[in-house]
Measured scan of single mutants.
Amino acid sequence: MASQGTKRSYEQMETDGERQNATEIRASVGKMIDGIGRFYIQMCTELKLSDYEGRLIQNSLTIERMVLSAFDERRNKYLEEHPSAGKDPKKTGGPIYKRVDRKWMRELVLYDKEEIRRIWRQANNGDDATAGLTHMMIWHSNLNDTTYQRTRALVRTGMDPRMCSLMQGSTLPRRSGAAGAAVKGVGTMVMELIRMIKRGINDRNFWRGENGRKTRSAYERMCNILKGKFQTAAQRAMMDQVRESRNPGNAEIEDLIFLARSALILRGSVAHKSCLPACVYGPAVASGYDFEKEGYSLVGIDPFKLLQNSQVYSLIRPNENPAHKSQLVWMACNSAAFEDLRVLSFIRGTKVSPRGKLSTRGVQIASNENMDAMESSTLELRSRYWAIRTRSGGNTNQQRASAGQISVQPAFSVQRNLPFDKPTIMAAFTGNTEGRTSDMRAEIIRMMEGAKPEEMSFQGRGVFELSDERAANPIVPSFDMSNEGSYFFGDNAEEYDN
């Protein structure tokens, strides 16, 4: 993207840094990872977990959730003011799984939030270390993106479920800051804005008074975040219109849905970061690795190297396929839920299948599930090659597409044709070009129609051997075009429920 120079890199967003050079960025990201790792080690000690239990991804998720809940100030305040039966607002906890007599047992633990905050700050040299908290939120978000298709949420806001490739980060909490905003897809931002506008339509006082002023500035800020994701002048001009509207209503909703559809071809720039579970960072720190000293990046080879040398386990339900569970977590670790499966298959070195073909449910185990038949197995999170994460949407291309997802959002900077089903997408653009945004709409449609099938995206960008740390010898991959490109292809993934 041309304006790259004016933006802070995501590592800076990730670490609240002012302008830093590459070495400083690597050190501050490393410091953040160190903090998460030290916190995780301490929690495993508190909970008396064995090494194996500490490497269980379900335990990692519970521990991450506990610290996120302990620092969720708004919710904590709300819980104190609106006490609900049987919930102690000062405590947080969740299921911890232990191996007892050759069987997995679930144990519900409860801790004072104050105590968890103390352990977290102690692991982070006394700081609140917001960057580390956001990092864990993005890992949870990436896992949700890989596990669930947001059909219901899309339909509720009037969008087409086939636009799911635009929904990265749709389950990120509001408090995820600049680093969170960077990884949100165009569809996620559109959905947040539509929800806001709908509230304004239904509630006369939404934009009024002292609160209304705050609401208005939040609305304009979200519009600017979305505008910054678009790469064409016409899309940005249309966002200006939406932002400046005196009284946002149905016309703005129409414009936003139009823009979301246009992003299936004229893709937005959305950041991709490899955020790993805390149970990967903990053992690495415990083994003596100093992330701050060595430096770390979320968008280069580092996460690949770390996963190459990590042992992570997962509980497996009786009829689940461990290899499929591994694929789910591998995609989440690489922030690749909406990437082209052919690119992923090449990088991973084994075939990556669409969601609907995987015999696996989510990673988390519900409290009512029976533990008797639970097994555990090693997650295979290694890769054959590594590639640089991208934040450009890439230019655009036609490809055989599917009944489910009709476009992709690249996660890796790797040369390819970008699949999208042009006739299906263009069919949504018939007729409606009147109104105050008509010239911009016409211009956007013209650009979409001009998108050429034979153009290559990320020209000359390749993948790298894991021994090639400096990215000196790019390998331009070859793809098996007979395979499906979309992950949520004609899909039956479970729906995400809060």
Rank of each mutant, 00 (worst) to 15 (best):
S359L: 12
N142Y: 09
G393H: 03
R267D: 03
E14F: 04
E455A: 11
N224I: 11
G300F: 09
R355D: 08
G126E: 10
Q364V: 11
Y10E: 07
Y219P: 01
G94K: 10
L256H: 07
L266D: 03
F304I: 15
S438W: 07
A234W: 05
P173Y: 06
R118T: 11
L154Q: 04
P477H: 04
D421N: 14
G180Y: 05
S392T: 05
S314A: 14
R55V: 07
L266G: 01
E369W: 05
L172Y: 01
G462R: 14
S9A: 15
P419R: 05
S376A: 14
A403E: 02
E494N: 13
N397C: 11
S359T: 10
A451V: 07
K357F: 04
D240A: 13
L259W: 02
V100P: 13
G356E: 10
K305E: 06
R216L: 10
D16A: 04
T45L: 13
D101A: 13
A27M: 13
K103S: 10
M1E: 11
G158Y: 12
K91D: 02
Q415R: 14
L418N: 04
K113N: 08
K422H: 14
F488V: 02
N21H: 04
E11F: 01
L166I: 14
P303F: 04
A323W: 00
R152N: 04
I41H: 01
Y78I: 07
M331P: 06
R152H: 09
D101E: 14
L276N: 10
A85S: 12
S359P: 04
A263S: 14
R348N: 09
K229W: 09
R162I: 10
V155L: 05
I406A: 10
H272N: 07
A278H: 04
Y219G: 01
P173R: 04
I265K: 02
A237L: 02
K229G: 08
T437F: 06
F71Y: 15
S486E: 01
D480C: 05
P173G: 03
Y97T: 06
A366Q: 02
N224D: 12
R236P: 09
K113Q: 12
T151V: 06
R195M: 07
C223W: 12
I116R: 02
G30T: 08
R261D: 09
K214P: 00
E46I: 13
N211I: 08
T360E: 01
R38H: 13
I194V: 15
L466M: 14
L315S: 04
N142S: 11
M222H: 07
F420S: 15
M239L: 12
S326P: 02
A451S: 00
D290I: 04
Y385K: 00
D145M: 09
M163A: 12
P277A: 08
Q308H: 15
G394F: 02
G132D: 09
A22L: 00
T147E: 09
Q399S: 05
G37Q: 07
P95M: 10
R156F: 01
P474S: 06
S407P: 00
K91H: 02
A442G: 12
L344S: 13
A182P: 02
T6R: 00
F291I: 08
E192L: 06
A260V: 15
F489W: 01
R391V: 01
S345I: 11
S50C: 14
E46Q: 07
I225E: 07
A366S: 15
R55N: 06
G349A: 06
A451K: 12
G132C: 08
A260L: 05
M136G: 06
D145I: 05
M456F: 04
L307Y: 01
K198Y: 11
M238K: 02
R416H: 14
Y313N: 09
G288H: 10
L466K: 02
R75K: 15
R348L: 07
R221G: 07
E484N: 12
I425P: 00
R19D: 04
P303G: 05
P248Y: 02
T215C: 07
R175F: 02
V242E: 11
R65D: 10
Q415W: 13
R117H: 10
T15V: 08
M66V: 11
C279H: 03
I347Q: 01
A234H: 06
M440P: 02
Y289P: 02
T171M: 14
M447I: 15
G94C: 05
E449C: 09
E18D: 15
G450F: 09
R65I: 03
D128I: 03
M189D: 02
L298C: 07
Q399A: 10
A387S: 14
N397K: 15
L79Y: 10
R195H: 09
V270T: 13
S482V: 00
E455M: 11
M159K: 07
K214A: 12
M447F: 15
V363N: 04
R216M: 07
Q149V: 09
P303C: 13
M222C: 10
L344G: 07
L266S: 04
Y78M: 00
N417K: 13
R436G: 03
P277L: 05
K293M: 08
V299H: 04
Q231C: 08
Y281C: 09
C223H: 11
A70N: 04
E375V: 10
A471I: 01
R461V: 01
T437G: 00
T360S: 14
T396P: 04
S486M: 06
R446D: 15
Q398L: 14
W386I: 10
R38D: 07
S60L: 09
S176A: 15
E14Y: 01
M13A: 03
L418H: 03
A178I: 07
I41M: 13
K91F: 03
D145Q: 04
T146S: 15
S310A: 15
F291S: 14
T350K: 14
W139T: 08
G431R: 01
G126W: 02
Q415E: 00
E369M: 09
D34Q: 10
I301D: 03
D255W: 05
E495S: 14
N211E: 13
F420L: 13
A179P: 09
R38E: 05
H135W: 12
E81M: 06
A401E: 03
T15S: 07
F258H: 10
P95V: 09
N319K: 15
A337S: 12
N211T: 13
N59C: 02
P95W: 10
N309K: 15
A366W: 04
T350M: 15
G249K: 07
S170H: 07
L49I: 14
R74A: 12
V155A: 10
R384H: 13
L298M: 12
I197N: 11
M163V: 15
L341C: 11
K7H: 00
G5I: 00
K351V: 10
S176D: 04
D497V: 15
K198R: 08
N205M: 06
T147P: 04
I138C: 03
Y289G: 03
F458C: 01
R195V: 03
T134H: 02
G268T: 14
N473F: 14
M447A: 06
I301F: 11
N368L: 09
C44Q: 02
S28Q: 14
P89M: 04
N144S: 05
V312F: 09
R199F: 03
I116P: 03
Q149L: 05
K184H: 10
A218T: 15
E292F: 12
E210N: 11
T130H: 15
P474M: 09
A403L: 04
Q398H: 14
G295E: 12
S486Y: 12
N498A: 04
D51F: 02
K7A: 00
S60P: 08
V155Y: 04
A427I: 07
T130E: 01
E115K: 09
E449A: 03
R221F: 08
V343R: 00
Y296H: 09
G249H: 07
H272C: 02
M189H: 10
V363D: 06
I63M: 14
R19T: 07
S176I: 06
L79H: 05
G35Y: 07
R150K: 12
A403V: 09
S84P: 03
E252P: 06
M331E: 02
D497A: 13
Q415I: 00
A179W: 02
G200W: 09
M447Q: 14
C164P: 05
R19C: 08
R26D: 01
I41T: 14
G404Y: 03
F258N: 02
A263D: 01
G54Y: 03
I138D: 05
Q409T: 15
D421P: 00
V100E: 14
D491W: 14
L379F: 10
E24M: 11
Y385C: 06
L276I: 11
V190C: 14
P354F: 02
W330M: 08
A493R: 15
D51N: 15
I406T: 14
M196S: 10
V463Q: 02
M481V: 11
E81G: 13
A178P: 13
A337I: 02
S141A: 14
R243P: 01
G132N: 09
Y496W: 15
D160A: 03
F346K: 05
A278F: 08
M222E: 04
T134K: 00
S413Y: 07
H82K: 09
T134Q: 02
F258G: 07
D203G: 04
E210Y: 01
